[in-house]
Design a protein around this nucleic acid. Structure first.
Lengths: 252, 252
DNA sequence: AAAATAGTGTCTATAAGACAATATTCT
DNA sequence: AGAATATTGTCTTATAGACACTATTTT
């Protein structure tokens, strides 16, 4: 048993608690006009047959970030537009059998039939996040909590970054980009003001010089843009709920 | 040796790579008008005698968050005003002897003689961050990288949260709060505009009804406030460098 | 009185919200 | 033509930047 007074300044290399370290990835995309996530069906106990976020053990010779990228590529062969570390989950009983610390990641992949053949492709699926978040037991382990944090991070980051463009592969229209915001935030945005904001942010959108074709109901062809190099949106675009964090209580 | 194809869906409980998990905490405060951090002198190899961020092993029965709070209280007996998870560092060779994954935390403690007697108090000190960040080897392990991320997180969070108030214990004046911003951001702020902003944010500052005493050079006594309940500052206050992330390159 | 710091008021510039009006495609 | 979508323009409102001015303390 490891010393109970273990301290980074006094430990010996043979005297420390052993943990397993995994990565779990919340891969978000838009499918059928809904914010959705890649899930896999578990093939082993615990939670055999239930849904879980894709992930796996970090290997001894790879960095945690590398493990996340490797697992992601094993699940989705589509190019990942964005991958960032989300948070680390380390409650003692989050895995029923042993002590596992999981480093969770958030990824965005482009729209439209995003997950194709991969090692575990047969068990991978894209499902809407809303019903998963409504039931704490809809995913294995504490993956609903991870997904909730991932969705909130995504919502927050659309406010002050240009990441929404990561939901598209080659090019997109301003209306399609606005649709991403409306779906992720679940609120309508004024088309004219949204356009003024995103086109007025230098480096957010790059004009391709081409137009798309109007949909079956007609309409003017829209200009196609691709993602520019600017990472931030300043000032941000605010969702309606942004202010709700500020509750003024009478005496605190 | 663990299976090289270990997967969260197929592992056995006895077949996984063993890691050590530690927490490291960047405890920021303001000392002598400088952004400063709590460091400890290491009492064991590796990096014996060098400076490091306080931290230690996560124990088998405690959560990672709990470990962070425990280590923090062992180092600083002053109440911690804010503690949040920063990021997890998992490069294979960040510790020269074995595979250690470290979950780093960011803490704010109040101003003024913050670190007192604690388990390791004799070895704890508060030092300015600037010289530490200037030399990649000024701290043990990858702690300079952790500190750099912590400082950047702190700078960013002052923009859109009310966290600066966490640098004060009981009450403070608007000018003292502004000084925090000026020190952390290393840039002057317009006093009148800053006051309008912070007092105009409902729930940021709560009027105590009392004034402080003017300093030795005189001046009007300033009203004392304490931290309110509002967590966010919307719209944010921007530092001058906020826009510099947007570089518009000709073709991307 | 002079210096120092706190606090108020005001003018201007920027950007968002609301929404009307025009443009270009489809059936 | 009429419907649908894209795009432009304009008026109003909110807020930050700049900075002058007033208020209250100390030496």
């Amino acid at each position: 048993m490891p010393s109970t007074t273990a301290d980074v300044t006094t430990y010996n290399s043979a005297d420390f608690p052993a943990f397993a370290v995994t990565v779990d990835i919340a891969v978000l995309t838009i499918d059928d006009d809904q914010l959705s996530v890649v899930v896999v069906e578990r093939g082993a106990e615990p939670f055999l047959g239930e849904l879980a976020l894709p992930g796996g053990f970090v290997r001894p010779e790879e960095s945690v970030d590398t493990a996340a990228r490797r697992e992601l590529e094993e699940e989705t062969s589509v190019g990942v537009a964005h991958l960032e570390q989300l948070s680390t989950y380390g409650e003692p009983n989050r895995d029923p059998r042993m002590r596992i610390v999981s480093v969770a990641y958030l990824a965005f992949i482009p729209y439209l039939r995003a997950v194709r053949a991969g090692t575990d492709a047969a068990r991978a699926a894209i499902v809407p996040v809303a019903p998963l978040l409504a039931d704490e037991r809809s995913l294995a382990f504490d993956h609903v909590a991870i997904l909730r944090d991932a969705v909130e991070r995504a919502r927050a980051k659309l406010e002050y970054t240009t990441l929404a463009a990561a939901f598209f592969s080659p090019a997109f229209t301003v209306a399609q980009l606005r649709r991403i915001y409306e779906i992720v935030w679940d609120q309508p945005l004024e088309p004219a003001n949204f356009r003024r904001k995103v086109l007025g942010t230098p480096g957010f959108l790059v004009d391709t010089g081409e137009d798309n074709k109007p949909g079956p109901e007609g309409g003017k062809p829209a200009r196609l843009y691709r993602a520019g190099s600017a990472p931030y949106l300043v000032p941000p675009i605010y969702r309606a709920s942004s202010l709700s964090g500020n509750r003024v209580t009478p005496s605190a």
